[in-house]
Design a protein around this nucleic acid. Structure first.
Lengths: 259, 259
DNA sequence: AACCATCGGTTCATTAGATGAACCATTGAT
DNA sequence: ATCAATGGTTCATCTAATGAACCGATGGTT
């Protein structure tokens, strides 16, 4: 991440600040000035000024006691604002809650943003085990149920673009050969839903179905999540039906007409 | 926001980019390059380069069709990461869900970050009316139930700092004189909970109670929200009890000992 | 068709301003 | 007492951010 420094598109100064901001947002613990200077092999003076600016805008905050730096609350506040912009969310939420009550599973909603599958909402299951992916998570296209639905029903060229990059094997069971993925996507396309048993994490599974907008374009997906016991790789007809009906209902609310 | 340009702390270039980013995040519609150049009375070339850099990092994205700019998904992704850092949230969530089921009201959780009351989580009520403040919202200290709890149980000097700035009257009923607020906070302190009927919005009310961490420090507050009919300014003893017991339970989970 | 006013984007000479080596003042461990 | 850290600051140097002027497209208006 450091010694290469190949591209640095646009304004270099801003580039540094953004890398700095992202670094702090992803660090779990507060980081000191010198440590940061080392990480970015830049001078302390430079980073100090950058941090000042970031802090002045609330993007970064400095712990009063240790003088170390953390990401600030502004990032969270602005991020939440953005979420609202995905109008799928507003119409999907009540339906997701109903599906949760009906199936007793956690329900997640994803959308495709810049070729990335992003989790927008998680409705927790009634049990106390905290299943499901947190909002903001970016899911792999080839291994998650959400991702495979996106590949099947999203933009035409998404699959080819996905195949142009190496497919990471998250578990020994992850499908990561070109032909196997193509077959899997074809299956998803024909039956209208996707599962991903043991694909990203041993023992967990997702069952996802697509949502379409008024124009017929792919708008996202909803999924129920659980263990391979509760949500098997070959799920019960009732569960599939409940999921697909909810997805269809959301699509209808978005103005999608007919099958 | 433009012609004054008084301070510009730290690196000026970064300052511009951050203002740009925030502007885009708060705009509801995509904005064009020229429009942005006008807003920031800066040249198109400059803004273009800034936008390039922001886009390269995913903080900004350009609509393919209109060429206009919007805030990107990165802001949301990073923001969600931040939320996890507030460990109150993880332990509070199941308790909040229970309180919701028990009281049939929406339940919100707030924390104090840099003297700001920020809503971290909203558990929707069972009804379909979408009450409660969305996560990411910043609440006023003097007018919200969350805020008054923070004033009563948060840092010592918070009240004085709050009083040093003018108190905005959100409604005709908003308490915004120094003495009235001091009295209100004293009352909250003595009885352990706060309400805010008609304080920020006519007809709505909140009922909040504090959460304390293992060290005894103020960790945040939970509140139920509703109309003044369902959550009256003088709420029923049962409702207060349910709220306070839940808050105490969360405090206990955080390691808080005794009263 | 010709016109004009936009739009997003690019070029390049000028100089503002970002940079880092060297510098404090503290702190804590040895 | 020493030493190596820490966060923070200063200032001369020269990188690199800047904006006027430019291009090619687009879309109304006349």
């Amino acid at each position: 991440m450091n010694q290469s420094e190949p591209p640095a598109i646009g304004t270099e100064t801003v580039d540094l600040s953004l890398r700095l901001l992202e670094f702090l947002a992803l660090s779990t613990a507060p980081v000191g000035l010198s440590e940061l200077a080392r990480q970015f092999n830049s001078s302390k003076a430079t980073l100090h000024r950058h941090l000042q600016t970031l802090a002045h805008h609330g993007f970064v905050r400095q712990e009063a006691t240790t003088m170390r730096y953390t990401a600030g609350i502004k990032l969270f506040v602005l991020g939440e604002r953005l979420r609202e912009r995905f109008d799928v969310l507003a119409v999907a939420r009540p339906e997701m809650a109903r599906l949760r009550d009906e199936t007793k599973h956690a329900v997640t909603l994803s959308a495709l943003v810049d070729d990335q599958v992003v989790v927008l909402e998680l409705i927790q299951g009634p049990s106390f085990v905290n299943f499901g992916t947190q909002p903001g998570t970016v899911l792999p296209l080839h291994a998650s149920a959400h991702g495979k639905v996106a590949l099947a029903f999203g933009p035409e060229d998404l699959l080819s673009r996905c195949l142009s990059k190496p497919l990471k094997a998250w578990t020994p069971h992850t499908v990561c050969t070109r032909s196997a993925l193509e077959r899997a996507v074809a299956q998803v396309k024909s039956r209208g839903w996707a599962t991903s048993p043991n694909q990203v994490l041993q023992g967990v599974n997702g069952l996802a179905a697509p949502i379409f907008s008024h124009s017929g374009a792919y708008a996202g997906a909803i999924a129920v999540a659980g263990t391979v016991q509760t949500v098997p790789g070959s799920p019960s007809a009732e569960l599939v039906k409940a999921l697909c009906q909810t997805a269809a209902q959301i699509s209808r609310h978005l103005g999608h007409r007919g099958k």
